[in-house]
């Protein structure tokens, strides 16, 4: 009973935080461009509208199963990320999982996407997926290296233990291990599909890329899972680098400040080409990550 209520609460919280954050992002974006922008609720309205539309497309069973796989991956990820520290609530199944499992779950989305888009046969969709997988090649390596750095530092794969090790502000991994934070932050922006790494879904180049064939309910589902996934990733980074959160307001505050950071970065940098993205990832975050590994493992002041 507790598990069911808890899971539903986590799903609900991640959804609400997701659409409010994205609504904020759109308004922030608008203000930077000197216009008023939509309301905070706009993403909720967009999502509801898509969920209330009809879906008359048929591209074979895989086209329908793809979004289901992606959404299932997102919901599972949400349930395996502990939202709160030292609390019975908003834990989901996180004590049965660890960081390695979360790494695997993060790949479910792109996989389901490739399956669905491949069966739709739309050339723009395939182009988008190709770009996405190329970008994935660039961002996965530094991302996992950054996570490995954190695991090395604390010598555990449990998110709970890493959270527990960061008691005060001075123990936050953000300050004790800033290299890992930077190594993770850049791929994190890319995995949110935000500028400057948003070449995958470029609206006028490849017509929304992987989403080109989706309209109606399936697109609504994809939007929903995207918002939940973003929150799950934000909370994961908050857990790993900002010491987790004791209650929901603190959680929202921390996740929001992280979101503000990534949003400000993505507002001021224009889009990079696919090969520029991969180049960048293999030079800056990966180089930093390798330096970080050397510093943590071999140098005397490391752990």
């Amino acid at each position: 009973m507790h598990a069911i209520v808890d899971s539903l609460a986590m799903i609900g919280i991640s959804y609400v935080m997701g659409f409010l954050f994205y609504g904020f992002y759109r308004q922030f974006n608008a203000r930077v461009q000197r216009r008023w922008g939509p309301s905070l609720w706009q993403n909720f309205f967009d999502n509801m509208k898509f969920l209330l539309k009809t879906e008359t497309l048929t591209h074979g069973p895989m086209f329908f199963l793809g979004p289901m796989i992606i959404a299932a991956g997102a919901i599972t990820t949400v349930l395996f990320v502990p939202f709160l520290k030292d609390s019975d609530w908003l834990q989901g199944f996180s004590e049965h999982g660890n960081l390695i499992l979360i790494i695997y779950l993060l790949v479910v989305g792109p996989l389901g996407n490739a399956l669905a888009v491949g069966s739709s046969g739309n050339p723009f969709g395939v182009m988008g997926v190709t770009r996405g997988l190329t970008r994935l090649m660039g961002l996965e390596v530094p991302f996992f290296l950054g996570l490995a750095l954190v695991m090395l530092q604390h010598e555990t794969t449990s998110v709970h233990a890493i959270m527990a090790a960061q008691d005060g502000l001075a123990q936050w991994n953000l300050f004790t291990n800033p290299i890992a934070f930077i190594v993770i932050l850049l791929p994190f922006i890319a995995s949110q599909n935000a500028s400057p790494f948003d070449v995958v879904g470029a609206p006028v180049e490849v017509y929304a890329g992987p989403r080109v064939e989706f309209g109606g309910r399936l697109l609504g589902l994809l939007m929903t899972q995207n918002m939940m996934m973003t929150v799950a990733k934000l909370v994961l980074v908050v857990d790993l680098f900002m010491g987790g959160a004791g209650n929901v307001p603190i959680l929202i505050l921390k996740a929001f400040s992280l979101f503000l950071l990534t949003a400000s970065i993505s507002l001021v940098f224009p889009r990079l080409k696919t090969e520029q993205t991969v180049d960048f990832f293999w030079k800056v975050p990966l180089g930093l990550g390798v330096l970080g590994v050397i510093a943590t493992v071999w140098l005397p002041w490391g752990a």
Binding site: W36, P38, S39, Q42, F45, D46, P203, V204, G215, L219
Partner: peptide, 17 residues
Amino acid sequence: DAERFGIIGAPTPRQAD
């Protein structure tokens, strides 16, 4: 700024209202 009324461009007919 039509976006303040919730009106934005859609990239493809599939997603358009």
